[in-house]
Simulated assay, not measured.
Amino acid sequence: MKNRIQTILVALVIATVSFAFTNIEDGTVEVKVEKSSVTWKGYKVTGSHKGKIALKEGTLTFNEGKLTGGEFVIDMTSIENTDMEGEYKTKLEGHLKSEDFFGVEEYPTALLTFKKVTSTGKNSYEVVGDLTIKEITKPVTFELSVYGNKATANVKIDRTKFDVRYGSTSFFDDLQDKAIYDEFDLITDLEF
């Protein structure tokens, strides 16, 4: 019995190591949107809120096993809050989808296109991309890691660059504890 458990453990270790160092085929691969997740986190003077937003589609491009490009379409109509329940959850989601924030009725998608990808280590990359929200395109820079068929990144976004000004002290005085910080995070876990 002990030998059998050891054999199973060795097989699991070998499978894990093999999976982690699997060579990625060259070309463009589709991101499995149903197995990937994007979590948003916004900050205000009195705390923070977080939630999810869905990818509509996405691709990553590889050349000689290295990441060289990517493009993602984000479904802005899917903005969901995950740290509240009931009436407050519904109100916050409605407000984020309204003209005060992302105006999802008029702008149902956002787009991120990789413009430059630089290797910074074995599985790490610095990505410079164009992010389009509300038909306004601005550059963003972030770190992305690739392991096997998974990629992770944390993208910090200044919402005011995309005309999302509600509650911003950059545009409004005397907000006091109603102020919402300009930057929010998108934490991505991708599978391809």
Rank of each mutant, 00 (worst) to 15 (best):
H49G: 05
G51K: 07
K52E: 12
L55H: 07
K56G: 11
K56L: 12
L60D: 02
N63D: 13
G65D: 04
T68Y: 01
G69K: 01
E71D: 13
V73F: 11
S78W: 01
I79E: 01
E80H: 08
E80A: 13
N81A: 12
D83K: 08
G86Q: 04
E87A: 15
Y88F: 15
T90F: 12
K91W: 11
K91T: 14
E93M: 06
G94K: 05
H95I: 03
L96I: 10
S98T: 04
S98H: 00
F101D: 07
F102P: 04
Y107Q: 09
T109N: 13
L111R: 13
L112T: 01
F114P: 05
F114S: 08
K116A: 13
S119H: 03
V127G: 01
D130Q: 08
D130E: 13
D130W: 04
L131G: 09
T132S: 13
E135F: 15
I136S: 04
T137L: 03
K138W: 05
P139C: 06
V140K: 03
T141C: 03
T141A: 11
F142R: 01
S145H: 13
G148N: 07
N149C: 05
N149I: 09
N149H: 14
K150T: 14
A153Q: 02
K156T: 11
K156G: 07
D158G: 05
